[in-house]
């Protein structure tokens, strides 16, 4: 985990410095085309330490990192950790809701699709899930908003209300982006569930269960689904990458103040420390999700638990 993060940190740091474009000071002071004297720019650069050699900047950043300090945003001057912190809850909630939504949609649909293979039920479910793969989440998001706007003359609230403060308001805001992101997620998981169950239902132990006289629905639920879950879990873990990608655009579409939108803003502003912090956060999130997936594996599959 540590070597991975270190690699990520080094990569992102130096990649940012070699990328072309104005730096954060230019963006902040001259971004609107204002006539700002060079000495002011230089003074700000010195204040932000941008006048130092890149390698020195790197070591001072790493020094802070080792003490758990992500540094300060070059744009807002506030600690990166603070900026991430205030946005994390929202993104986490959307990601979580999208995942839960995806699973809630995928498991029953995928199972139905597999059981009623090649019937009209299967066809409809497959059309829905293929559509999910084809439709980009931001486009679906725009459709959702336009639908709400034209039909209900209503759009979800713009500012975030924490779930514990007002669950209804919170959900009325976040359910839509979760849907937009979760749809693709669910589509992938539905397809995986379907093929996984189809595969599992061919397994010898399914035949064993039937030969024992187990009720067919128990054969599916008890013997089939649990075994079919493993590849589905894998896919859910892998798709988490797309989820984060989806969040970046979906948060724009829904104007959500989350990690994804901050990412776009930080890149547009050339806010290096912020981008670095964000990339590290995503890397940590990835590692954690994979760890969770491993744990889930172990929970579902005793072969992993006991080996």
């Amino acid at each position: 985990m540590i070597p991975t993060l270190l690699g990520v940190a080094i990569l992102v740091f130096f990649m940012l410095r070699v990328m072309p474009g104005d730096d954060v000071v230019e963006m902040m002071l001259r971004g609107e085309g204002a006539d700002v004297p060079q000495h002011i720019i230089e003074a700000e650069r010195i204040r932000l330490g941008l006048d130092q050699p890149v390698i020195m900047q790197f070591f001072s950043w790493m020094g802070g990192l080792l003490q758990g300090d992500l540094g300060t945003s070059m744009w807002t001057g506030r600690p990166v950790a603070y900026e991430l912190g205030i946005r994390l809850e929202l993104s986490l909630q959307v990601a979580l809701m999208a995942t839960v939504l995806a699973i809630l949609i995928a498991l029953p649909l995928g199972t139905l699709s597999a059981i009623f293979r090649n019937t009209w039920i299967d066809h409809i479910i497959r059309i829905v899930s293929i559509a999910g793969l084809a439709v980009p989440s931001f486009w679906l998001g725009m459709l959702i908003i336009l639908f709400l706007l034209t039909v209900f003359r209503w759009i979800p609230p713009l500012t975030f209300t924490p779930f514990l403060e007002d669950p209804l308001k919170n959900l009325s805001q976040l359910i839509w982006p979760a849907l937009a992101v979760g749809y693709r997620y669910s589509a992938v998981a539905t397809r995986m569930t379907r093929s996984s169950i189809l595969e599992v239902m061919q397994e010898d132990y399914i035949r064993t269960a039937r030969a024992k006289g187990v009720y067919e629905r128990l054969v599916v639920a008890r013997h089939g689904m649990r075994n079919a879950l493993l590849p589905v879990i894998t896919v859910i873990g892998l798709e988490f990458a797309f989820l984060i990608g989806g969040l970046v655009v979906t948060e724009q579409v829904f104007s959500l103040n989350g990690i994804g939108r901050l990412f776009v803003q930080a890149v547009a502003r050339g806010d290096y420390t912020m981008i670095q912090g964000l990339v590290l956060l995503v890397a940590v999130a990835f590692i954690l999700v994979n760890f969770l997936i491993d744990l889930l594996y172990a929970a579902v599959d005793p072969r992993i638990r006991y080996s």
Binding site: M142, I145, L146, L148, L149, R153, W154, I155, P157, L158, T159, Q252, V253, F254, S255, N257
Partner: peptide, 20 residues
């Protein structure tokens, strides 16, 4: 007043929907 930071299509939607 409540100034809400939003831009592009979401901003137009928010205005159309009366959120701002």
């Amino acid at each position: 007043f409540r100034a809400i930071f939003t831009s592009g299509a979401p901003m137009v939607n928010a205005l159309a929907g009366g959120e701002v």
